[in-house]
Amino acid sequence: MIPEVYKVIHRQEEYPGTFTLHLESPASPPMVYGPGQFNMLYAFGTGESAISFSGLEVEEGLLVHTIRAQGTVTRALERLKKGDSLGVRGPFGRGWPLQGIEGKELLLIAGGLGLAPLRPVVYRAWQGKLKASRARLFYGARRPTELLYGDEIPHWITKLDVVMSVDHGDNAWPGHIGVITDPLQASDIDGANTVAFLCGPEIMMRFCIQVLLRKGVPESAIYLSMERNMKCAIGLCGHCQWGPNFICKDGPVFCYQDIRAWFQIHGL
């Protein structure tokens, strides 16, 4: 599978080392994708990286990807400027199950960069396009200067509840300080009537799931997005195996009920 060439039409620095690219293809028809899916972004001569969709969907005819410069490929992507070209393969994987949330309360629980794959869902909630009865976002970040989409969040809170927590805060920080599980635990959650989408470090998801289960959210209503090394994104290279699952094609979004056994095994 060969990448299509896209152009960077806008680049935004979120905070040092983390940036958002808006991509447009001069040649290809608009890509049809769902929230929670991902693309493989190819930095010329350097390699590919699996990056989730973090923008609005096809309406705008462009792809939005938020990336943290961490390895060789993402550092090469970081150097791209407006007008530069890159390769895009996708969309891949199974995304968030937006069909299953009708009439339920939706909890979006994000840790750090984990907000990026959930932003398309936040946008839908903000636009009133979600069929959920109510949507709440719990967002944990390291420090106030490392909040993703800091300029947008004040707009989001007009339409949905946003609870934020940082590990390291100062006097100016109005939100919670500590791990996100604390405000989650303190919240009023109608377990039986709730669906939760989680994305973040595995340790954070692990503890949040414990809280959710204690609050009576069924395992079948908890969805999480997993990360593993990916090379091909099409189930052929073997890298992203996790027990019997291929994260690239069976995930990255899984229902907790289906993968609980694998989630407990260290070094799988």
């Binding site: 001569g45 590919e48 593993r228 090394n229 090379k231 073997g238 890298h239």
Partner: peptide, 30 residues
């Protein structure tokens, strides 16, 4: 299992992608 290798020539203008066998026994794999 396989992996890919991306290379460029000295001019930096030409790149190639190659696939090669890989093994789940390497530390890079995961």
């Amino acid at each position: 299992c396989s992996t890919v290798e991306d290379t460029t020539d000295l001019s930096g203008e030409n790149a190639e992608r190659w696939e090669r066998w890989d093994s789940c026994f390497t530390s890079d794999f995961s």
